[in-house]
C-alpha cells in the first residue's frame, strides 16, 4: 500500500475563461445554423441570417472600420495566446514534505500573528509573495531589538515551510 501525496494545488487555468467564451460562441453559431434551417422550412419567420452575412461579405475592401477592428483583433488574439500558454498559477507552499499545503495569504496571517506576539509590538501587517514574506511592524521602545526579535520569532514559526520563505521586515516606531 502506498502513501502517495497528490499533486501540488494550483489555481484555475488562465485559459478557462477563454474556453468558456469559445464554448458559448460555438453554441451561438450553432443556433444561427439551426435558425436558418427552420427559416427555410417555414417554421421561423424573418430573413436568413447566414444569407444576410454572406451578402455583407460579398465584397471586402479597405475601410476606416479596419483600424479599430484590426487593433481589437490583435489585442484579443495576443490575450488568447498568452492565456493558452500560461501555466497554472502556484497558490500554495508546502508545509513539511508530505502533502500538507498552505496558501500564501495564510502564511502572511501566521507571520503577522507571530510578529504581534513579540514584546513592544503594537501591530503588524504582512504580505506573502512567492518566496518572501514582507512585514510592517509598529512598535514602541528599542526598534533594533524589536526587529531582531520579530526576525527570530517569524523565522522559527515559518521554518517548517518547504522551502522556508525569506523574511523582510520594516519596524516603524510608534509615537
Amino acid at each position: 500500500m502506498s502513501n502517495e501525496t497528490a499533486k501540488r494545488p494550483t489555481g484555475t487555468a488562465a485559459v478557462a475563461p477563454v474556453g468558456i467564451l469559445a464554448a458559448v460562441a460555438t453554441v451561438a453559431i450553432g443556433v444561427v445554423g439551426v435558425h436558418d434551417a427552420l427559416q427555410a422550412a417555414g417554421a421561423v419567420r424573418g430573413p436568413s441570417w447566414t444569407e444576410w452575412l454572406a451578402g455583407r461579405l460579398e465584397t471586402i475592401q479597405p475601410g476606416g472600420w479596419m483600424i479599430p477592428a484590426g487593433i481589437i483583433a490583435v489585442v484579443v488574439g495576443l490575450y488568447f495566446l498568452v492565456a493558452a500558454l500560461k501555466p497554472r498559477r502556484v497558490t500554495h507552499s508546502a508545509v513539511g514534505r508530505d502533502g500538507v499545503w498552505i496558501r500564501r495569504r495564510d502564511i502572511a496571517r501566521l507571520a503577522a500573528e507571530s510578529a504581534e506576539s513579540v514584546d513592544s509590538v503594537v501591530s503588524a501587517t504582512a504580505k506573502s509573495r512567492r518566496r518572501t514574506v514582507r512585514l510592517t511592524v509598529r512598535a514602541t521602545g528599542d526598534t533594533d531589538r524589536v526587529a531582531t526579535d520579530v526576525d527570530t520569532t517569524v523565522r522559527e514559526r515559518l521554518a517548517i515551510l518547504s522551502p522556508p520563505p525569506r523574511i523582510r521586515r520594516r519596524v516603524v516606531e510608534e509615537d
Binding site: 487555468a13 485559459v15 474556453g19 469559445a22 495576443l78
Partner: peptide, 22 residues
C-alpha cells in the same frame, strides 16, 4: 481550451495585422 485559444489567438493576430496592413 489551450488548443482552441492558441488557434483563435494566431488567427485573430494574423487577421488583425493583415487588415491593418491592407
Amino acid at each position: 481550451d489551450r488548443v482552441v485559444a492558441f488557434v483563435l489567438g494566431v488567427g485573430l493576430v494574423a487577421a488583425g495585422a493583415g487588415g491593418l496592413g491592407w
